[in-house]
């Protein structure tokens, strides 16, 4: 459910990334069909890429979780919290756990990369519930081009 929640939050903030002149893209494991289905069902209108070999995950320094990092107390508590929040939140998208596809213990994260190739921000997940706050990601990206979103 954390992936869906994260993707939906990114979708909701996509115009803020556009306004800040930042390219927003998401990478997931799986097939083209799975990505297209995910995009359609979740209503996520951001560029989605597929990496069935997980080469980009390895290059980004993402880790494979231990079982306690997938279903430990902290993860379960956050899952309950986010499920309740998503059902209370106004809107049509309700987030819940879907079928886990491909490598079930692969964790993700976020990198903000400047045009010179330097990585200016990195938040790689420590457990399944650990997602980077969009506000933090945007702030890091805006710091690269501080005037791009001056009017927003």
């Amino acid at each position: 459910m954390f992936c869906r929640d994260h993707a939906v939050q990114l979708h909701r903030d996509r115009h803020r990334f556009d306004a800040a002149d930042v390219t927003l893209a998401a990478i997931g494991q799986g097939t083209l069909d799975q990505a297209a289905h995910f995009r359609r069902v979740q209503g996520v209108d951001i560029p989605l890429f597929v990496d069935p070999d997980r080469r980009s995950y390895e290059a980004a320094g993402a880790k494979v979780a231990m079982l306690s990092e997938l279903v430990g107390p902290r993860v379960i508590a956050r899952a309950v919290q986010r499920t309740l929040a998503s059902r209370i939140r106004q809107g049509s998208i309700v987030v819940h756990q879907g079928r886990i596809l491909d490598h079930p213990a692969q964790l993700g994260g976020v990198l903000v990369i400047a045009p010179d190739g330097s990585v200016r921000y990195a938040h790689m997940s420590e457990d399944a519930s650990d997602n980077a706050p969009n506000g933090e990601v945007l702030a890091a990206a805006r710091a690269i081009r501080p005037h791009a979103d001056a009017g927003a």
């Binding site: 083209l32 799975q34 990505a35 964790l107 976020v110 903000v112 990369i113």
Partner: peptide, 27 residues
Amino acid sequence: DYRGIPTRLGDLWRDRPAALVFLRHYG
């Protein structure tokens, strides 16, 4: 991408910053 169009990742941040989000899966 989800349409099958290939993209070199470096092209995403060639002209402007990019936020690259690694999701766990598309489930």
